[in-house]
Nucleic acid binder design. Sequence first.
DNA 1: TCTTAAATACAACTAAGTTGCAAATATAGT
DNA 2: ACTATATTTGCAACTTAGTTGTATTTAAGA
Lengths: 127, 127
Amino acid sequence: MGILRKTKSVEIVVKQFDKDSSAISVITLVERLNSDMNKTTVYRILNKLEDDGVVHSFLGKNGHKWYAKCNNCSSTKHHDVHPHFQCITCGKVDCLDINVHIPEIPNRNVEIAQVLLQGQCDACIKN
Amino acid sequence: MGILRKTKSVEIVVKQFDKDSSAISVITLVERLNSDMNKTTVYRILNKLEDDGVVHSFLGKNGHKWYAKCNNCSSTKHHDVHPHFQCITCGKVDCLDINVHIPEIPNRNVEIAQVLLQGQCDACIKN
DNA sequence: TCTTAAATACAACTAAGTTGCAAATATAGT
DNA sequence: ACTATATTTGCAACTTAGTTGTATTTAAGA
Ligand SMILES: [Mn+2]
Ligand SMILES: [Mn+2]
Ligand SMILES: [Zn+2]
Ligand SMILES: [Zn+2]
């Protein structure tokens, strides 16, 4: 069940993804919004926003949860499945607009491919 | 720093991977070996076995740690990087002996590709 | 404005994984 | 085989991401 009421807290959370096209970890979000709302609220709002197709989630390199804005998803259709890239130097995480081809696996029916690439981002290569 | 002494506990842990070619989650291992050793010991031995190139680790769908036997790795060379498959029905996890091609990403230097495929395994498709 | 279902804060909880330290034990040297 | 000692283990306490229950607050329709 998604979001039913446009509360102040919901607005604040959504705004975080508007100003930043990168993904944001829940840990960061909880810390950043610490003075605005309780961490439980952050978790619950993100959960609902994902139901609504406003954001999508995935796990970063330590298994911690990250969220990023969806592009054209809805509560009925979440077609936002793509690889993510995490910089091992600065920690920044981005959605990748590429298609990783998964070969057919014998005797297995692959439904989801979760791909996390790690390396150095543009800014960190230059330093 | 890897394993220096062949203790009873080490033997028991290694044996788990000998009899089962599938990956094993740490959670399962801790539970299974509960009467043999402390959970701290399980964590520490697995950590050392990975240093030695005996096993390798990765994160399953909930971000929990899994281990599987290495094929021809050593403490100096861990060339055991491959996708893993987790059955969403029975939970079983296997190493995949396939190569997923990662395309070049502009402005990024990809060093590691962590691929977790999810779907149905052979046994679960048939049921 | 009133009503009420949804949302929130807060505190308590769960569980995976880690750390510090004292006790136990594997192994090399004698 | 005995001893010395560095490694390993058990145990308890801790850390932290994430969840849950519940009383209170609030959005929004009537
Ligand atoms: Mn994304
Ligand atoms: Mn593997
Ligand atoms: Zn970077
Ligand atoms: Zn299965």
